[in-house]
């Protein structure tokens, strides 16, 4: 199962990269960034999986004495947890820039922003 998830994550990363590099509309480019983000999260959670083990939460089924042999890795999960929230913040920031750019030029075509082109 972790192999399947890893494949899905890599393919979603590639799809996001493709959207970032080929699309002309800024909204579509931001959608590409969101897909890239989701793919990286899937890859990290898949790397944390240990075969046949339970979630890292101790209760009546996962006892405290045998925790080492019965849970999956909690550290990448904690990193992904914060990364998702930061991802929302960064997406909102990019969308705020998009609103400002649209106010300036009247459209969102990436080809009409030539100020920093070289």
């Amino acid at each position: 199962m972790e192999y399947v998830s890893l494949t899905i994550g890599f393919l979603v990363i590639l799809a996001g990269l493709w959207a970032i590099m080929t699309k002309k509309n800024i909204i579509r480019i931001i959608i590409g960034f969101v897909l890239f983000d989701t793919g990286i999260h899937i890859v990290m959670v898949a790397l944390a999986y240990v075969k046949g083990k339970a979630a890292p939460i101790l209760d009546s089924t996962v006892s405290i004495d045998d925790a080492v042999n019965s849970i999956v890795d909690p550290i990448p999960q904690a990193l992904v947890l914060t990364a998702i929230v930061i991802g929302l913040g960064v997406t909102a920031l990019m969308l705020a820039y998009a609103v400002k750019l649209h106010k300036e030029k009247g459209n969102l075509d990436i080809k009409s922003f030539k100020e920093l082109k070289w």
């Binding site: 998830s5 899937i42 944390a48 999986y49 339970a54 979630a55 999956v72």
Partner: peptide
């Protein structure tokens, strides 16, 4: 993706992704 996280034994991440993503 949040359902996939749940299958990969990460309920915390699944909750965050379902609410935010």
């Amino acid at each position: 993706a949040s359902v996939l996280y749940l299958l990969l034994a990460a309920p915390d991440v699944a909750m965050t992704e379902a609410a935010i993503g």
